[in-house]
Nucleic acid binder design. Sequence first.
DNA 1: GATCATAGTCGTCTCCCTGACGATAAACAG
DNA 2: CTGTTTATCGTCAGGGAGACGACTATGATC
Lengths: 252, 252
Amino acid sequence: MPYDPSTFPPFAVTVDLVVLTVRKDALCSLVVRRGEPPYQGRWALPGGFVRDDEGLEVAASRELAEETGLLHSQATEGHRGGAHLEQLATYGAPQRDPRMRVVSVAYLVLAPDLPSPVAGGDARSARWAPSDALLDASEGLGRDAEQQAPLAFDHGQILQDGVERARSKIEYSSLATAFCPPEFTVGELRRVYEAVWGVALDPRNFHRKVTGTPGFLMPTGGTTTRQGGRPAQLFRTGEATVLNPPMLRPEA
Amino acid sequence: MPYDPSTFPPFAVTVDLVVLTVRKDALCSLVVRRGEPPYQGRWALPGGFVRDDEGLEVAASRELAEETGLLHSQATEGHRGGAHLEQLATYGAPQRDPRMRVVSVAYLVLAPDLPSPVAGGDARSARWAPSDALLDASEGLGRDAEQQAPLAFDHGQILQDGVERARSKIEYSSLATAFCPPEFTVGELRRVYEAVWGVALDPRNFHRKVTGTPGFLMPTGGTTTRQGGRPAQLFRTGEATVLNPPMLRPEA
DNA sequence: GATCATAGTCGTCTCCCTGACGATAAACAG
DNA sequence: CTGTTTATCGTCAGGGAGACGACTATGATC
C-alpha cells in the first residue's frame, strides 16, 4: 500500500503540555481558559498545533515558551537551566475533539516555582491550579460548592497520567530537583517530595537518604535560613540521574 | 486560532509495533521486509496507517492481528488470553519518512513464543530476529561479515526504546509472564528474565523471590519435566500486577 | 540397575537499607 | 533568656537480597 494522499486519512497533530510545579507545598498544574467552543470558558491544558516543519519536542518546547513566557527546555532530556521536558503519551481517540480527528502528543514539564506566575507571552488567562482539585473535578463531578468544572477534552486523563508519571519518576530519578531553584536545601527538596506524593516524610531519614546517595546532591558551600530555623546547607543537582536504590514512597 | 483545515498542516498517522518474544533464550523482535522504496529490501517494524474512525490502540491491535495472524490483545492494559500491548512512544521528526510528514505512535507488544512462527495474515516476509543483532546493526554500522543492514526509518531507535522499556518494566511488574505460556515453571520464568536482561540469575534466590511475592504466581497443582531434571511445579500468573519490592536487575 | 547430569526446592548467614525515634545544633521571636 | 523552628547526627531493630550449601527427583548413559 503506497503512501498516496488518497489512501490515508489526514490528521491534525497537536502537543498538549502538563506543566507541573510545586507552589506553597502543593503540586500545581498550568491551565488556560478556553476562549472558544468547544468547552468555551473551561480550563484546559496549554497546547497547540505542530507545524509542518517542526519536530514534536520542538513544538512542545515552543508552546511552553509561548505559554509561560520564560521557560524553555534544553538539549535532550535535560533540565538544567530550564524546565525538564519529556514526552508523556499520545491521545488519539476518534471523538476526543468533536470538530475533527486530532492526535495529541502530550508532554510533561517539571518546573521550579516561577517568581512571575505565568507572565508574558500570548497566555490569555493562564493560571496555576492545584492538581488534585483539577483531578477531583474531572472525576466526581460536582459534589460540593467549591467544585470546578472538569478540564476540557480528555485533558483530565492526560493530567492524571502526567501527575502519576511525575509521582513515580521522582522515586527512582533525581528529577525532583527540577521543581527546585538552582540552589536548594535538603528540606526544600523534601517538601517537594511531600507535595508531589501527598505524604509526610521523616526529615532525618530523608536527609540520610539524599545525602548518602552518591552524585545526587553537590554541596555549594553556602547556607541559607530562608526557611527559618537553623541554617541549612545549599546544594546543587549532582551528576546522577537515577537513584539506586530508589526513594521509597510510603504505601498508605 | 480556530481549527480550520487551512490553519494546520495535515499529518499521516501510523502505528508501529515493537513485538518482543523470547525464543531459545534470546530476546527476539518481529520484523518485516520492506517490498517498496524507501528502504526497499530492508527490515522494518510492522505497522500501518491509523484509519480515520479508529483509536490508536485499536489500530495497533488490528495491525498486530494482521501481522501475526493469531495474536490479539484484550481489554485495557491486559495481557491474559493474548499478548500484552501498551503504548510506547511517539516519533515525529520532520524527515523521518522522506515522502511526507508522518507521525508514528509506537506500541510495545510482549508475546509468548508462538508455535507457528509468524504464520498467516498478509505478513509477506516476517520473521523473528534477535533484538541485540538488530540493535547492533543500527548502531555500529557494518563491522563484520554477519552484519545486517540497520532497520528502516528510525525503527532502530524505536526498537531500542521498546527493548529498554521491557527491560525496566519486568523489574517492577509481573509483565515477564507475558512472555510465558499460560502455564509455566519458575525456571522458565527465570530464563525469561535472563534472556531479556542478558544476565545470569541465581536459581535459588529467584525462586525465593517469585514464590515469596504474594499474588505473583498461582500454583496450578500440576508439574512438568519438559525442561529435564526434577519435575517442576506449574504456575499461572496471579492477580498482582506490580512487584513491590521490585526484582532487582544486577548492575554489571 | 547404578551412576551421572540436570533442574528444582529448601535453608542459612551476612550485609545493607529502611523505618522509628532520641538527641543536639543553630537560627529567630518574644 | 526561653521557647519555637528547622537542620543534622546517631542508634537500633527488622526485612530483603546476595552468596552458597544441601537435598530431591527426574531422564540419560554405561
